[in-house]
């Protein structure tokens, strides 16, 4: 793949530029918006082959692309079918946003109640609607890059794209929010303000946004690398939260099952 600058030149179907596709499965369309809003920065370097959110044509799914960005979780059979098709056509597959990387709040919800029961309660017992327990993309296909965020950081999005255009897998850290918070020299809201801040176990990238505004991090980017979940659970319990409240907070925004099970096993029942 070559990096070609488009400049003012009209690009067409035979564009020498690398191609990208932008797809949304089940999510809030936040990442689609971030990509749409950064499009003017991407367009000199890439040909947008498919972006159903922002185009009229409806027939582009079959074309091979260099980079496919996918937002959203797999939450219905239709999502899974589309994911398979996109994977088969893409050289690099980038999972963008918490939904695609961890499953976000819909995955948190699946831990509280089985999907079948939610479906029956919402649409009635004989509804033909099909729902799957919400899962991140890597449970179904190979994912080359995982870029979490809720929403994703646009600088990281551009850096990931630039890396891939150079045939280079980007390095994305998921150090805790606390690290960024210390760099901003914020007072610790967990200690000083006694807030249930999830900064110690949440992946940074947001720039420690919530604590910078004096609020508690609520975990929207998903778990950091090697999250000390058990210690975090103990701190919250010491602050007076009941076990189900602690689990609800720690896992509201999606995390792998292994982590959930591990914490569930280790935390002493109050």
């Amino acid at each position: 793949m070559f990096l070609v600058r488009n400049g003012e030149k009209q690009v067409n179907e035979c564009s020498p530029l690398p191609s990208i596709a932008v797809h949304g499965l089940t999510g809030c369309a936040g990442e689609l918006l971030v990509i749409l809003e950064n499009l003017e920065k991407l367009i000199p370097y890439v040909w947008v082959s498919s972006f159903p959110f922002a185009q009229s044509r409806n027939d582009d799914d079959d074309r091979p692309v260099d980079i496919a960005f996918i937002e959203g979780s797999v939450s219905q059979p239709h999502d899974l079918a589309r994911l398979m098709k996109i994977r088969a056509q893409a050289r690099w597959l980038v999972a963008v946003g918490n939904c695609a990387v961890w499953g976000c709040v819909q995955r948190g919800g699946c831990r509280k109640e089985p999907v079948d029961s939610m479906l029956t309660a919402t649409y009635g017992a004989d509804s033909p609607i099909q729902a799957l327990p919400s899962t991140p993309l890597d449970q179904h296909v190979r994912v080359d890059v995982k870029l979490s965020g809720c929403p994703i950081n646009s600088t990281q999005l551009l850096a990931v794209t630039a890396s891939l255009l150079r045939d280079h897998l980007p390095y994305i850290t998921s150090k805790p929010v606390c690290l960024e918070c210390k760099l901003r020299e914020n007072a610790c809201v967990l200690i000083e303000n006694n807030l249930p801040c999830l900064g110690p176990i949440t992946a940074g990238g947001c720039g420690a946004l919530c604590p910078t505004y004096g609020a508690a991090c609520y975990g929207c980017w998903g778990p950091s690398e090697e999250p000390q979940m058990e210690a975090m659970a103990t701190i919250l319990q010491e602050k007076g939260y009941a076990l189900d409240e602690v689990m609800g907070r720690l896992f509201a925004f999606g995390a792998p099952d292994e982590l959930f099970d591990r914490v569930k096993r280790s935390v002493p029942q109050a």
């Binding site: 499965l25 089940t26 809030c28 369309a29 936040g30 918006l33 959203g72 979780s73 797999v74 939450s75 219905q76 239709h78 999502d79 976000c104 709040v105 819909q106 948190g108 919800g109 509280k112 109640e113 999907v115 939610m118 479906l119 309660a121 919402t122 609607i129 729902a131 919400s134 809720c150 929403p151 609520y218 929207c220 189900d244 409240e245 609800g248 907070r249 509201a252």
Partner: peptide, 29 residues
């Protein structure tokens, strides 16, 4: 045919202070 996420179910059990941050995720725009 957008996939369902059952927000009214998954919000149950969460504290009043958490509600806005979770329901925010219904829709970005």
């Amino acid at each position: 045919f957008e996939g369902t996420r059952f927000f009214e179910r998954l919000i149950v059990g969460h504290h009043q202070d958490e509600i806005p941050h979770i329901t925010s995720r219904v829709c970005a725009i």
